[in-house]
Structure formats: structure tokens, C-alpha cells
Design a protein around this nucleic acid. Structure first.
Lengths: 111, 111
DNA sequence: TTATTACATTGCAATATTACGATAAATAAA
DNA sequence: TTTATTTATCGTAATATTGCAATGTAATAA
């Protein structure tokens, strides 16, 4: 079918999955890492950096924007992209809340 | 096309994306959370817990196994699944290494 | 042996994702 | 105005994912 049964799961589980899906492509990881490295708003020289077509990069940027992890501000004819630090922290904590749940007793899994 | 150009990206970027893809489904998040909650090996009452068919659960378990985050040990006629604590930590640190890179100076993004 | 039980695998239909050429839109430069 | 320049969107082909019924497999019970 190819359609996820979202109604079976909690809002938090769906949100985590949605965010993870955006992280689930190396180009999007690369874009985030480039924005981190630049540590400033950067415009579309991403097309030069990664070896993908402009339309493809634009599509990846849209998905990153959809979960709010990046923001774009128009700067004349070009667009400056940057990571939203607030959202970045939220997402970091969302993952951390999952990872921190196990193991309950350090160094003691069950297998 | 639908095929990711993995050769354009670093091994680390591809690994992060591959792991994120496995986390990118609410059923797989739910399975992990169930295993965390049980804090012990649990067998296939996952089919009861989540509202998905046995074949579907089995497929999700296989994807979780593929990145090593869970292990299954045969226990008579059933199978006990549990989280691999070593791998769990590795994955946690992989995500953390991404999140920790930004912002370089706390409370100071660029937008 | 013959069930039964618990999972895994296969095969398929429905849908989603990836990539990119073509084109649109919006601003700046000539 | 006309022409670049930059980014977004549309349309489409190739491939991947999701979900499940049907079937396979392996261990146990009768």
C-alpha cells in the first residue's frame, strides 16, 4: 500500500518519525552540516558543494523547512538559509528523550 | 529516479541517513519504545500491542535488525527481541555528534 | 507422525521518494 | 525595457516503502 497508518501511533511517535524521515537522506545531512560549518546564513552555493541539480537541492531545502529546522530569508535575488537554533534544540531533545530511556540501569541491557 | 546518489556523500553522512531512515516510521519507534518500557527481552506480542499484521511487524523488526539496534534470540518456538545496548549507544552518539555541532556559541544562531 | 504455534519470506498493490529538465517568478543590472 | 541571476514549482520517470495475504520454516505438543 505504501501508506503509513499514523492513527495507530502517538503524536510523539509520529513526530519523531517525521523528523527522522527528513534526516534520512545524505544530501539533507550534508546540507545541515554545511550550514553548521559555515555558522552563518548561506545562500545557494549548495548546488556547487553537493553534486546535485538545483531543482533537487531546492526540494531538499523545502523538506528541511517543512520541519522548521532551517529558515530562509530573502536577500535581494538570492536566499539566505540557516539553521533555526530553537528548533534545532527541540529536535535534539526529542531524539535525546528517546535515547535516554535505555538502558534504565547503565551497562545493563538484557541480552 | 528514486535512487539516492550515495557516492556523492561521506560514509558518515550515508550511515546517519541509513539509521535515520529506520527511525523514520512510527511503528519502528513504537517497537523500540515498547522494548525500552519492557526493559527485558520481549517476544512477539508486538502484534497485539501495535495494530499491524504479523507480516508487517516482522518486516519492521528486520529493518531494525539490519542496523543492529535490536537483536533477536530464538527461545524455543518464539523469538526474544531486545535492544543492543552497545549499538544503541553508538547510534545515540552518532546523532549527538551531529546535534552538538550547532550552535558553536550557545544561544547565538545567525537568524 | 501429525498438528500447532511463532516467525520469516514472498509476491503484490498502493503510495511515497528521488532526481532532474523545463518553466515560472522575482529581483537586479544594463 | 530587456537581460541576467537566483530560487521555486511542475511534471515525469525510476525506484523505494508500506501493508498484508499467502506460504514457508522450524520447534514443540499431542
Amino acid at each position: 500500500m505504501g501508506v503509513t497508518k499514523s492513527d495507530l501511533f502517538s503524536e510523539r511517535q509520529n513526530e519523531l518519525a517525521t523528523i527522522a524521515r527528513v534526516f534520512a537522506h545524505p544530501a539533507r545531512i550534508a546540507i545541515l552540516e554545511h550550514l553548521i560549518k559555515a555558522n552563518t546564513c548561506i545562500n545557494g552555493d549548495l548546488v556547487q558543494e553537493l553534486g546535485l541539480a538545483q531543482a533537487t537541492i531546492s526540494q531538499h531545502l523545502r523538506e528541511l523547512k517543512a520541519i522548521g529546522v532551517i529558515k530562509g530569508s530573502i536577500e535581494g535575488v538570492s536566499v539566505n538559509y540557516c539553521i533555526d537554533p530553537i528548533r534545532w534544540l527541540e529536535i535534539r531533545q526529542l531524539f535525546e528523550s528517546l535515547f535516554a530511556g535505555f538502558p534504565k540501569i547503565p551497562d545493563q541491557g538484557c541480552c
